[in-house]
Design a binder for these strands. Sequence first.
DNA 1: CATGAATGAGCGTTCATTCAT
DNA 2: CATGAATGAACGCTCATTCAT
Lengths: 224, 224, 224, 224
Amino acid sequence: MARRDKRQDIMRAAEKLFTTRRFHEITTDEVAEAAQVGKGTIYRYFQDKEDLFFQTAMSGFDELCDLVRRKGPSGASFREQLLEVCGRVGMFFARRKQLFRLMQAEDFRMALVAGSIHDRWLGHRKQLVAAVADVIRKGVAEKVIREDLPPEVLANFLLGMLRTRARDLADAPEAVRRYEVVLDLFYHGAGRAVSRGTAGQAGRGACRTRGLPCATGGLSTRGR
Amino acid sequence: MARRDKRQDIMRAAEKLFTTRRFHEITTDEVAEAAQVGKGTIYRYFQDKEDLFFQTAMSGFDELCDLVRRKGPSGASFREQLLEVCGRVGMFFARRKQLFRLMQAEDFRMALVAGSIHDRWLGHRKQLVAAVADVIRKGVAEKVIREDLPPEVLANFLLGMLRTRARDLADAPEAVRRYEVVLDLFYHGAGRAVSRGTAGQAGRGACRTRGLPCATGGLSTRGR
Amino acid sequence: MARRDKRQDIMRAAEKLFTTRRFHEITTDEVAEAAQVGKGTIYRYFQDKEDLFFQTAMSGFDELCDLVRRKGPSGASFREQLLEVCGRVGMFFARRKQLFRLMQAEDFRMALVAGSIHDRWLGHRKQLVAAVADVIRKGVAEKVIREDLPPEVLANFLLGMLRTRARDLADAPEAVRRYEVVLDLFYHGAGRAVSRGTAGQAGRGACRTRGLPCATGGLSTRGR
Amino acid sequence: MARRDKRQDIMRAAEKLFTTRRFHEITTDEVAEAAQVGKGTIYRYFQDKEDLFFQTAMSGFDELCDLVRRKGPSGASFREQLLEVCGRVGMFFARRKQLFRLMQAEDFRMALVAGSIHDRWLGHRKQLVAAVADVIRKGVAEKVIREDLPPEVLANFLLGMLRTRARDLADAPEAVRRYEVVLDLFYHGAGRAVSRGTAGQAGRGACRTRGLPCATGGLSTRGR
DNA sequence: CATGAATGAGCGTTCATTCAT
DNA sequence: CATGAATGAACGCTCATTCAT
């Protein structure tokens, strides 16, 4: 029982310390102290420092997965559902900033490793993508999402856009950071409605007015 | 001149070594050896190891900036110009994989530092975003790109999508990895044309047939 | 009784593990596992790890002592008795190789310690020497062993020769490793009979033919 | 030039520290401090701690080899030459006590390792045995040493006896520790002359009186 | 300017020992 | 008595940085 607790404590400590420092800047001493356990205890639950961060990152995927999969408000439209998912993921990226960073760091590392570790990682990553893809699939079924691209691919792009929002637009104005903006871009793209159909901006406008900022002129991203 | 050369050699060495290892896994000994210079020489051109990687990453931004800014084929339409830019950026991400990774790593680190280093970094980053935004701005002028969002924001998303393509869809089928796909998504989004305008799918279809894969059904991302 | 058993188990485990590793390369975890007891149990029977090996080595001396003291075949000549002893000691060195090594290691350590531990060790060591000396003393009584040197000194040398045989001549040809060779060297030395007495080689030869290999020319030690 | 010096310094330091402690009780910090070098410097000259002690021990063999091979006084008889060798080896064991211990410790370890390290060790060990065997071979040529056993085997036994003298008889009375005693035992063995030839003790006596203690009755080994 | 031998602070990891159960 | 989870002192080793040549 305490077993699970200590393991959790250590991972939480690693996550917390990752807020301000990188993997190689965090010492096991610090982790142990932050987790309120002896240094040796870390090695009872994790093979080594690398494994600790790896497992912590994987648990992050699981957590995020659960978040995505959690049932949204019943009776919501697909669009509302997707917005809900965006909100949850974006919230996670913001609130669990440390874990988000840790996950990205691990994801980054995975480009360099192979073997079972890489496979385990990929498995968890795919779970997340699949969870998002499942939502998107509903949109496909409802004929509101294009079906010429696999939902998984779209899910990757959507997650990427949320990542962009979280990282590169962290200091952008509130209006730009609204989930509706991300969702709208994901949905309709950056192109002007005028270039499509004959209805001019009307069609687009109609869509956009569903709570999207139509007049964000003058917005500009500032340095973080 | 020789001064410039050694500096370059060292940065190239750092970049090369970054292919298979992370910052803290690369030793200055290795860099010195790979660059064919004495270990002490590194410290003549760079303040410390961190500075070496920082500057290398910044030079990467400059390089990428030049690539984006380089005049495309004259007489090309906006769309063709944007496609050209996507191609160049995507090419850079693929061919200069190491440098790409190094830049991402530094970008990652910048979340943790402040002060002049952070500012210098942001300056370079903004240059890149601005370069892409400049291209997008043309689309706005031509009324084919929406103007409710600042071009810089759109540039960030476009770069993010290219990053997604390079990293998360590295092993996706060729059809999915085509720049037209990214561009189409950026342009029109993931939504179905039917939901917009009155022209039905015609408008969308017409647009999509501009060299975009309309029949990619059955595509699926495979694990990297 | 159970007490005795666990103590024995632990010592056996230590002995066994000593086969392939040195004191500091053997962990108490391993000992505990090999002995099928909890790690803490070791500390019920032994003060610490050092004490465990110390006592194990001492028990080795006792065992070897018993072997030396055990009554040989009645009616045997002194020479036969000595040969018997050599055989037993040599057998012990070979069969209980691990314990032999452990004893030597402890013996080695004793050069560095003082106090009661050193004294206890010396006591056990002396027991062994005394046991061998007792046999030799019979030879002195029978006037076949020189009396100008204390039997204990001779016992030390004999044990040393058996050690040499076991360790340095482990890979020597069978003919050289025969106990008769050790015993003959101990008895008559490496010198030629011709240099002694007036009887020329006859005396020596006569002696040697007592079952000793007179024609071992061409023997050579190979590397272990 | 300094290169050789530091290497020497470090080995001397290791040797010195081995006086009072065992391998695993000596820290690299201590070695560095005793050698007056930085800790990292050790690793410029030696692969690791194990290698340091290994090489130190090997240098001990070389040193001892040189000692054995050094030309003795010209015109000396074989016996005098052998006595000289015994004296030198014994002296080495006594004066370079630490190195002697270190060598034994390594020799001890070699029973557990295989491969090139084991082979290198064996090579050095054989050099020493060969050096002693070379001396003994002269005795064989002069017909004073038996030829039914390979000189190398005899050399091993002689070295073993000197080891016994150094280790087990360290506290024996001066009379017993004389090199003549070892040499006499090696030469004539522990048997009584009376049992050989017809000349009774005369032959033996004649031999023994060459400076050997014929009346050592009452000698006894005391505890160290 | 260039070099690379020397340095030693610092880190990941081990493992003998303890003690609550 | 027996256990094994927890501990943290201690150690081997690395590697960024310096500086004499």
